[in-house]
Structure formats: C-alpha cells, structure tokens
Amino acid sequence: MSATATLLDAYCIRAATGTDAAVNEAVSALAAKIPLNSIGTTLQSFVSAVPQVVAAIDTARSDPDNLYITTSTEGDLANAVWPGNGSPGTVGSGQTQLLGVSVPVDRVQNVSLWDHDDVSSDDLLGSIRIEEAERGEGPIARLATSSVEGSLYYVTYRVD
C-alpha cells in the first residue's frame, strides 16, 4: 500500500523578488558594455550601484507571492493540488499558509511551489522531494528555494 503525505503548511521566509531575473542580469552586464573610463566616475558610480538599487526597491515593495502547489515540475494553476479552487493563495515574507492537503507517495513525490503571474509564465518558487521511506517519522520540514526568484519556503508535512 502506497503512502500518503499530508502537506501541513508553508512558511514563507522570503517571498520571490518582484524584479525579473533577466532584467537583473541585463543590469549587471551593463558595466561590461560601457567604456566607463572614458565617460567619467559619476556614471561609473551609478552603474556600479544599480544592482543594489534594484535589490533595495524589491525589498521595499515586498509583494506577496500568489502561491499554488503542484505535484509536478510544470507550473499550471489548473493542476494545483492546493488551493485547488482555480485561484492562488497569497503569502508574504514571514507568513505561514496552512495547507491541509494530502498527496499520494509511491516511493518519491515531487511537490513544487509556484507564483502565479497573470501577464507572464508562472515562476517556480522551489520544490521539495517527499519519500515514502519517511512514513511514520512525524512532521518534517523541508526547504524549498529558488535562486532565480530569491524565494525561501519551509514546507511542513508528514507521511502516513
């Protein structure tokens, strides 16, 4: 008989950044494309500070994630196991979202957290791997993270 994992909650340590990773990369690459020595120190100082400014703006905005959870590595709100009503839940940094959803575990089960976007493709916030061998160990917390999105979540679950 296969196991069942009950997803208890998701604690958001840090919500995804509000800036696009491609924009951050383009800004970071900007200094390599401008001959700063011939332009002057004012522009050089500005270009050097831009990545920190982007990070500060993003921190100040602290937009919550439009969270949904799938058991696959494909983001699609229609396939969400949580919240499962066709709309995402909202969670911000320092907040816990109660889940209370069960998923089957046949040896290993992937659980992925997503940020739903209306105007672009959804962003993967991180994934965890639940193993059938964890049955009976009680509540377990695993870190789900995305270096691209800058998100950090702990997902708590138990396997019965």
Rank of each mutant, 00 (worst) to 15 (best):
E149T: 11
E149Q: 14
V91S: 11
L8H: 13
S62F: 09
D65Q: 08
L67D: 00
I69P: 09
Y154M: 12
S38I: 10
V101W: 00
G136L: 09
V50N: 11
Q97C: 00
G126C: 04
E149A: 14
N24W: 11
V81W: 05
S38L: 14
V23I: 13
S48P: 01
R158W: 07
D20R: 08
G92R: 08
S112L: 02
D65H: 06
A16Y: 00
E132I: 09
G100L: 04
G138L: 05
Q52L: 12
S72Q: 03
T4V: 11
G86H: 07
N79E: 14
D58S: 15
T96C: 05
S112E: 05
A21M: 08
V111F: 06
L30I: 00
D115S: 06
V111I: 12
M1Y: 11
L67P: 06
V103I: 11
I57R: 15
A15Y: 04
Y68M: 05
A78D: 13
Y11P: 05
R107C: 07
N37K: 13
F46N: 10
Y157E: 03
T17M: 10
T73Y: 09
G84I: 08
V119T: 14
A78H: 10
V111W: 01
E137D: 08
D65S: 09
V53C: 11
L98I: 11
L113C: 06
P51N: 03
S38C: 07
V119A: 14
V111E: 01
N79M: 08
T73V: 08
G100T: 02
S112V: 01
D122K: 06
S112W: 04
L152S: 12
V47D: 05
Q44Y: 01
Y154G: 06
N85A: 08
P35H: 12
L125Y: 04
G89Q: 10
N24E: 14
D115L: 01
A78V: 07
S28H: 13
G94H: 06
S146H: 03
T59R: 15
S147F: 09
Q44M: 10
A15P: 01
L124K: 04
T71D: 02
T59S: 14
T42C: 08
A15G: 03
G126V: 01
V105G: 00
D115A: 02
A60W: 10
Y154P: 06
T42Y: 08
Q52H: 11
A55S: 15
N24T: 06
P51I: 09
R61W: 15
D58V: 07
V155W: 01
R14H: 12
T17I: 07
G136P: 09
E74K: 15
T4K: 10
S112I: 00
V27Q: 03
T19V: 13
I128Y: 02
A31Q: 14
A26Q: 13
S146W: 04
V101K: 02
E134F: 12
A26P: 05
P88E: 06
L36I: 00
N37M: 13
V103H: 00
A78M: 04
A10Q: 00
T42R: 13
D58H: 07
V108M: 13
V47K: 01
V105C: 00
S93W: 04
D106W: 06
L143A: 09
F46A: 13
